[in-house]
Write a protein that binds this DNA or RNA. Structure first.
Ligand SMILES: [Zn+2]
Ligand SMILES: [Zn+2]
Ligand SMILES: [Zn+2]
Ligand SMILES: [Zn+2]
Lengths: 133, 133
DNA sequence: CTTGACATTGGAGCCGCTCTAGGGTTTAGC
DNA sequence: GCTAAACCCTAGAGCGGCTCCAATGTCAAG
């Protein structure tokens, strides 16, 4: 299978696949006579795992490592590490969501102040730094 | 005032300030005899606005542009543009928060499946691509 | 005088792609 | 057989917004 076909099947792009390869995150595939990359079903399966793990927003290196292990049959260990990674990611998500919601409330408040005639300087307070130093 | 002092007052770093300057987002400050950057209160005020706007997570270029305009006295217009930018940013935030919450639910579901003995491959479904093509 | 904190410059590194330039190859229709 | 579209190749730049590094210069306190 050629790179475009593989990319389409996994809803990614040839660029991304080549990028993973350059980074050493995927086994170097065979080449046809015309130098086109030629992927097996096993290659595809491994990449499918990698892409799937990336969609969980795991760091690329970790996603690639887990995909490699799993393909090599260490599914138990992958399962373990994955549970751990998921729990960490969920904590990170909770923090991030809180941040974004906080920012949203701040923006709502600001919009209100601007609407009632406050100047930008007055509104972008930042605490007028010097006061609390 | 030197760059370190200014950075501390605005809770940013000398690196960041020089970075803004290199990007042409801040007026080039005067230099002392020793070639150290020397900032006036007006410089500080302008940077304060920039930093404040960045904390609202406006794009750097836009934050810098608004800070410049405001410093130049076009506060009305800034106020207008800022309201618009805030409303757009809030939409973006809503979308982003939805995404993150969706991912969080997915992760929770996955953790459950892994806990009840499913293999990673089975769980990182991705729809087993071929089916819906 | 020495030590340490501060300043200077230019440039690399982070993340994970995405896109471009400048080629070569395959494929479908006519 | 020919042409045009769509694919493939490589190497490298670019994105945002800093952060950090190296190598060097400057200055205040003890
Ligand atoms: Zn496995
Ligand atoms: Zn208020
Ligand atoms: Zn103003
Ligand atoms: Zn289910």
């Amino acid at each position: 299978m050629r790179i475009g076909t593989l990319a389409e099947r996994l809803r990614t792009t040839p660029h991304a696949i080549r990028f993973y390869e350059r980074r050493g995150l995927l086994p170097v595939p065979q080449r046809a006579d015309n130098r086109y990359r030629s992927y097996t079903e096993q290659d595809a399966e491994r990449l499918r795992l990698l892409v799937g793990l990336r969609q969980l927003d795991l760091p690329l290196e970790q996603a690639a490592a887990l995909a490699g292990m799993c393909t090599a049959g260490h599914c138990e260990q992958v399962s373990e590490e994955l549970r751990e990674a998921i729990s960490q990611k969920r904590e990170e998500l909770r923090r991030r969501i809180d941040e974004l919601q906080f920012l949203d409330r701040r923006l709502a408040h600001l919009a209100g102040q601007l609407g009632s005639g406050e100047t930008p300087q007055a509104v972008i307070t930042l605490g007028k730094e010097e006061r609390d130093v």
